[in-house]
Simulated assay, not measured.
Amino acid sequence: MAKLGRHARRQRNTTIAWIAALLLLIVVIVASVGYKMLNAEPGLNKVTLCPNDGPRGHYVLLVDKTDPLNFTQKQAFSVTLKEIIEKRTPEGYLLSIFVLGEDFKANAEPLVELCNPGTGAAKSAMTANLKKLRQQYEHKFVEPMRKQSEALLSTTAAKTSPILEMVQLVGINGFRKHDIKGERRFIVLSDMLHNTPQFSMFRSAAEYDYPAFAATSYGKKTQVDLGGADVELLYLLHTPQLQTRRNLLFWEEYFKKSGAQVVAVQPLEG
């Protein structure tokens, strides 16, 4: 067999080198595509910003606006709302905001509810557009939530405060409607002094006896299933002489019967 000439050998080696380089490029492309597919986050719903495979958890905030806040309470409320929106609601969780007003029927649905899409801070610039993710977080999640702050405040006192009815609606149109299997947290900002013609905590200390209340027709009518939610109570101290340990005990027993538990109690400054 004739030996290859020097030129032919050089040409053959060049061809082999090109083939090797091409194979290496294919391997790199395949590996890169595979990496992106394995590390890709689920797509988001364009309207709710929730993962397409469903929210990972559900936070519900109920704000009582049946009494106006004083100056200090407004400052504390503003900071609290910002913390819940920007720091406390985890990425992929649905945040629903309800308002408690004199007419609970007019407030049956949440003012706003969106999932936290995430800021992109934990993602790599190689696999995600970090600037776009940050803009999405700021303009489509944080801003719509903040815009509701005025709607959550009142300048005049209401004649009634139907807390029980609103908690019931939160259970129906909040937790039960979405039936999210992850963590459920219910944050209530209120004086926790229910006041309707059927039942008022302003009448006498006897109104704080939960077992007696639960046995009444109104108590049975306002019972709710909160599906294992953790409850945080942020007390607006409008009437401290009525917002005693007995008042808190009433609500602890009420939420326990609702399948939830009070995990934190804190007075709002002011």
Rank of each mutant, 00 (worst) to 15 (best):
F141Q: 09
A158H: 07
Q148R: 15
V142T: 08
F250T: 02
F186M: 13
D179H: 13
F255V: 02
G171P: 10
S190M: 09
S96Q: 10
R146G: 00
L100C: 11
A151T: 01
V167E: 05
H139K: 09
H58G: 06
N173V: 06
C115V: 09
L237T: 14
F175V: 07
N70G: 00
V63Y: 04
A121Y: 05
P110Y: 11
R88L: 09
Q243P: 10
G270Y: 09
K131G: 00
R10A: 14
R246E: 15
P90M: 06
N70F: 01
Y35N: 13
A260Q: 02
A206F: 03
V30I: 15
P211F: 13
T156R: 10
G54V: 12
S149C: 04
F98K: 01
P144A: 08
N247Y: 03
S190E: 07
Y137P: 11
K220R: 15
L164R: 12
V99H: 00
L38P: 00
I19Q: 07
T119R: 13
K257W: 00
F77S: 13
S124E: 11
K65P: 02
E183R: 15
S32V: 14
P90C: 08
I84K: 02
F175T: 08
Y59L: 13
V47W: 04
A122F: 09
A31M: 11
P90L: 08
I84N: 02
R184G: 07
L62M: 15
V33F: 07
P90W: 08
F98R: 05
R56C: 02
N39Y: 07
T127V: 13
N13V: 03
N107R: 00
H58K: 10
L169N: 10
Y59K: 09
A121V: 05
M145P: 00
